[in-house]
């Protein structure tokens, strides 16, 4: 029988594979609907290419995009799950194995020695750990492309400008991202917390369930307004002016310092790749299709 460490490693490899190769059904449906609604020939051609590519990836079990990102794992670690400090080692091994097997493009670049060739480097894979109750380890694999990460934006908004200032910054950031991060986009917005924490909240917001608005009706209303206004910017599919600019947007909020209003905006390209699975302390694995 495999021990728990091997099970976690194999699960992480499988999650990276699913994330890299298969786009979630509701995203595919949204892109498909966008193609039906888009009037211009260029926008439709771009969406057809996207949908054909998604189909090819699924059929041939290959990565949707050659940029399989810097590998990141978001973990929810249950109180009674027995593996702790070995998690990094296990996830590094999983990353090496996935790089070889899927294959993933080697994307970890050492600042002095160049590409490490196996996607493992200092602090990479990125690992985020949240402590939760229970017996399980939940793993989300999030291989995120560089193009859409490069358009991420951060601002310490003047508190006096309030939500209007926040909304203005999100609109400006999206206009600035323009064609560069492969729209139609998924957006995560983090507000409050601190200068670094708002970026983490933004990334967390990105992973919220598709099309489900914030539990706080006030925040939900802001999400709707932003999504509507972003889609009126006219960036369009691949920045060619036709079709949708964003498919979804989520906001996560935290309390803030009286003098600070930190805002982070994180973008994903249309190929928003992530996969989630759960390992119990007995080694039972469940994969989740969202």
């Amino acid at each position: 029988m495999k021990n728990l460490e091997n099970i976690v490693e194999d699960t992480a490899v499988e999650l990276l594979k699913r994330a890299a190769n298969i786009l979630q059904n509701d995203y595919v449906a949204a892109l498909s609907e966008a193609r039906q609604k888009t009037r211009g020939e260029i926008g439709r051609s771009e969406l057809s290419n996207i949908l054909k590519n998604i189909e090819l990836a699924k059929e041939t079990s290959q990565p949707i995009c050659q940029d399989t990102g810097v590998v990141a794992f978001m973990l929810k670690l249950g109180d009674n799950f027995p593996i702790r400090s070995k998690l990094r080692k296990i996830l590094e091994n999983a990353t090496r194995k996935a790089t070889n097997e899927i294959p993933l493009r080697p994307n970890a670049v050492d600042l002095f020695r160049g590409n490490t060739k196996d996607n493992v480097g200092r602090h990479v894979p990125l690992i985020y750990i949240e402590l939760v109750e229970g017996d399980d380890l939940e793993i989300t694999a999030l291989p995120k492309g560089g193009g859409s990460s490069n358009v991420a934006a951060h601002s310490m908004v003047t508190p006096g400008l309030g939500w209007k200032g926040i909304k203005q910054f999100v609109l400006e950031s999206t206009a600035r991202a323009g064609s560069l991060g492969c729209p139609p986009y998924f957006l995560g917005v983090g507000v409050g917390g601190g200068e670094d924490y708002c970026m983490f909240l933004a990334k967390k917001a990105l992973l919220k369930p598709f099309g489900v608005r914030n539990e706080d009706p006030k925040v939900a209303k802001i999400e709707e307004e932003l999504l509507e206004k972003i889609n009126s910017l006219g960036i369009g599919v691949m920045g060619l002016g036709e079709g949708p600019t964003a498919l979804d947007l989520h906001i996560e909020i935290a309390a803030r310092h009286p003098a600070s209003l930190p805002v982070g905006v994180v973008f994903s390209c249309w190929a928003f790749r992530h996969a989630k699975g759960r390992v119990s302390k007995e080694g039972k694995v469940v994969f989740e299709y969202a």
């Binding site: 309030g162 203005q168 064609s179 206004k229 002016g241």
Partner: peptide
Amino acid sequence: NMTKQVMERVSKNKEELIKKLEEV
């Protein structure tokens, strides 16, 4: 340069949309 033309339009749209932002 089509992308440049699109982005010029986006920039104009952005200014208009900012003016229309709702109060919270």
